[in-house]
Amino acid sequence: MALFFDAAWYDDRLAERGLTRAVLAAAAGLTAADLALAFKDQRELSMREVAAFAELLGVSPAEAAARAGMRPPPPSDSQRIAALEARVAVLEAELARLKR
């Protein structure tokens, strides 16, 4: 079960885009009743549903998940490797600069 669904944040994002909860529900394949339960922390959401929320609201899936009281899934191996490679490249560039 979600720890805390930030309904006000979701409502504010929807209002900024001129959208309603009904549109949010439809985007995620939920009924209005299912979405209402999620907004009251009485229904768990799947990451697929939260990803649909994120896309509709123009935020990252991690942000949408956090605001839904969920932890986003851990990064994939390829995402972790890419992040590590980027960090190594920064360190190598700094080392090269220091050797000059």
Results as ranks from 00 to 15, higher is better:
residue 15 A to G: 11
residue 4 F to R: 07
residue 24 L to I: 05
residue 96 A to K: 12
residue 89 A to S: 10
residue 22 A to K: 15
residue 72 P to D: 10
residue 24 L to N: 06
residue 24 L to Y: 10
residue 32 A to V: 12
residue 54 A to R: 03
residue 21 R to Q: 12
residue 14 L to G: 01
residue 72 P to Y: 06
residue 45 L to D: 03
residue 48 R to W: 02
residue 85 E to S: 13
residue 78 S to Y: 13
residue 41 D to W: 10
residue 78 S to P: 08
residue 12 D to S: 15
residue 38 A to F: 04
residue 9 W to M: 03
residue 18 G to T: 01
residue 16 E to L: 04
residue 86 A to R: 01
residue 26 A to T: 05
residue 29 G to R: 09
residue 91 L to P: 03
residue 61 P to W: 07
residue 76 S to R: 14
residue 15 A to F: 00
residue 24 L to H: 07
residue 90 V to H: 04
residue 7 A to L: 14
residue 33 A to L: 05
residue 6 D to F: 03
residue 52 A to S: 11
residue 76 S to V: 13
residue 1 M to V: 08
residue 28 A to R: 03
residue 60 S to Y: 06
residue 62 A to V: 05
residue 3 L to T: 10
residue 43 R to S: 12
residue 52 A to H: 02
residue 77 D to S: 14
residue 83 A to Y: 09
residue 66 A to E: 08
residue 11 D to T: 09
residue 60 S to N: 07
residue 65 A to H: 03
residue 15 A to E: 14
residue 36 A to H: 01
residue 74 P to H: 02
residue 16 E to R: 06
residue 93 A to V: 00
residue 96 A to T: 11
residue 10 Y to F: 15
residue 64 A to R: 10
residue 65 A to G: 10
residue 35 L to S: 05
residue 32 A to Q: 12
residue 52 A to E: 06
residue 57 L to D: 00
residue 21 R to W: 08
residue 26 A to Y: 06
residue 64 A to F: 11
residue 67 R to K: 15
residue 78 S to T: 13
residue 26 A to N: 09
residue 42 Q to V: 02
residue 20 T to S: 12
residue 71 R to V: 04
residue 33 A to G: 12
residue 40 K to Q: 13
residue 96 A to F: 13
residue 17 R to I: 05
residue 75 P to I: 04
residue 88 V to F: 04
residue 38 A to S: 04
residue 89 A to W: 07
residue 55 E to F: 08
residue 49 E to Q: 15
residue 37 L to I: 06
residue 17 R to D: 01
residue 43 R to W: 10
residue 63 E to W: 08
residue 83 A to N: 01
residue 99 K to A: 13
residue 12 D to G: 07
residue 52 A to R: 01
residue 68 A to Y: 00
residue 43 R to G: 06
residue 94 E to L: 04
residue 95 L to C: 08
residue 14 L to I: 02
residue 79 Q to G: 11
residue 88 V to Q: 10
residue 4 F to K: 14
residue 52 A to V: 03
residue 87 R to K: 12
residue 82 A to C: 01
residue 3 L to F: 06
residue 81 I to H: 15
residue 45 L to F: 03
residue 53 F to W: 05
residue 3 L to M: 13
residue 70 M to K: 11
residue 40 K to R: 04
residue 53 F to A: 02
residue 35 L to Y: 02
